[in-house]
Write a protein that binds this DNA or RNA. Structure first.
Lengths: 223, 223
DNA sequence: CGAAATCTGAAGCAATACTGAAGATCGAGG
DNA sequence: CCTCGATCTTCAGTATTGCTTCAGATTTCG
């Protein structure tokens, strides 16, 4: 899961970042509106954690921007204000959920997972694709009812492929989703090849068929 | 077990808190409605002990809040009034049990345990999982009919794992459940490793197999 | 056929998990 | 109030696992 944290208070920002990184997500963070909009224009995120009160403007403009550009990223608003107005405004403009400071990290995580799930896979916690079954809450994956043990990268990769099933996904898109924005200057996809190979092997062993079709010069299609 | 005690009478509040803390539970307490609602919004509890008569409002609003937010925490109402009306109202709104002042701490404990059990494991006092047998009232644990002596932390941990059997639970989730809310900024899971190790060893010695499967980078699964 | 892209297995390195023992803390009993 | 034992936590050393890199094999496409 790839997150963007927009929060100007350094302590809170780092706490959130550290927590989600430990939980296995890719985090990027920024502390003002301008750099937030820059990032959103360039990259895709699974969920954006948005503080409303920012030094250079109202966080609502992020929602505006997403709407105008037809991006449908999940947005969770973080706000110090407990005002009903802000809440209604945020949800009307397109935020998916709302949490008020101070909050508990576990609750934040639960909310992020919930809205991401809702937007990506529908309202269920059980995700099924052909012979693959994923319990998103329990993080359990079975193929033909046999348990498949996956590493963090493999699990994230599988979710990404299932979310984009049938579509051709470029290697750049995969790399950016799984490793964040430090992959810009990359000159080799060796690490990606290795992870694909490992996931492919585990899936093939249990399903008896290859879920991946490689598109030469572009990327992969999950079928 | 993690409890929230909402009681404005300081003497009673501290007595209850002290008693349950000594019994090995994690307790948090507050003395008015406002701070109670704050806490409930932020944290998760196994059981909430709720006094109805509070300085800044009726305790029933706590039940309302839980209902509106789809939280299914156990609630035990403590009340000085012996009125049937209050009792009916409380249970209708979603409380799990009711106790009238004055009461014996042992009875309070029994009721708390009972409703927690009912909600978590069903109606029985004997909890069985594979070769493990737990008498929740007597706090006795046997494995293959042999008694297993556990410390408080180990016992709580075992219950938590059995409540989440088969699911992957993250280290953060375990830490939060067993140590409360000061674990956010934690930079090491050493203490968790140690407790897992000890519980694992005791279980393995009696059962002859390992109940824990470690998920590298994530947490554990109890099987 | 040849060049570029992809795949594969093995190796080094970094991160994470496990272990035993020592130090700190807590609670029961004198 | 003090002592002692049990429990909890910390720590340092070791083991394990996963991530990345790399070199060579294989495939694809012009």
């Amino acid at each position: 899961m790839k997150l963007l944290i927009i929060e100007d208070e350094p302590g809170l920002r780092e706490t959130i970042e550290k927590y989600f990184t430990e939980e296995g997500s890719i985090c990027e963070a920024c502390d003002d509106l301008k750099s937030a909009l820059d990032k959103i224009a360039l990259y895709e995120y699974d969920c954006i954690l948005l503080d409303i009160g920012l030094p250079d403007g109202e966080g609502f403009s992020v929602l505006d921007y997403l709407k105008r550009h037809n991006k449908n990223e999940c947005v969770l608003i973080i706000s110090a204000r407990n005002s009903l107005d802000d809440k209604i405004k945020g949800l009307n403009i397109g935020a998916d959920d709302y949490i008020t400071k101070p909050f508990h990290l576990a609750e934040l995580k639960a909310r992020v997972l919930a809205i991401f799930r809702r937007k990506t896979f529908g309202s269920t916690n059980i995700l099924t694709y052909k012979e693959i079954n994923i319990d998103l809450l329990g993080r359990n994956v079975t193929v033909n009812d046999e348990v498949m043990i996956l590493t963090k990268k493999e699990y994230d990769m599988l979710l990404y492929f299932i979310a984009n099933k049938g579509k051709v996904v470029s290697k750049n898109a995969i790399a950016e989703h799984l490793w964040g924005d430090e992959t810009d200057l990359l000159d080799s996809f060796d690490f990606l090849y290795t992870h694909i190979k490992n996931l492919r092997k585990k899936l093939t062993e249990l399903a008896g068929r290859d879920f991946f079709s490689s598109i030469y010069g572009v990327g992969y299609k999950f079928i």
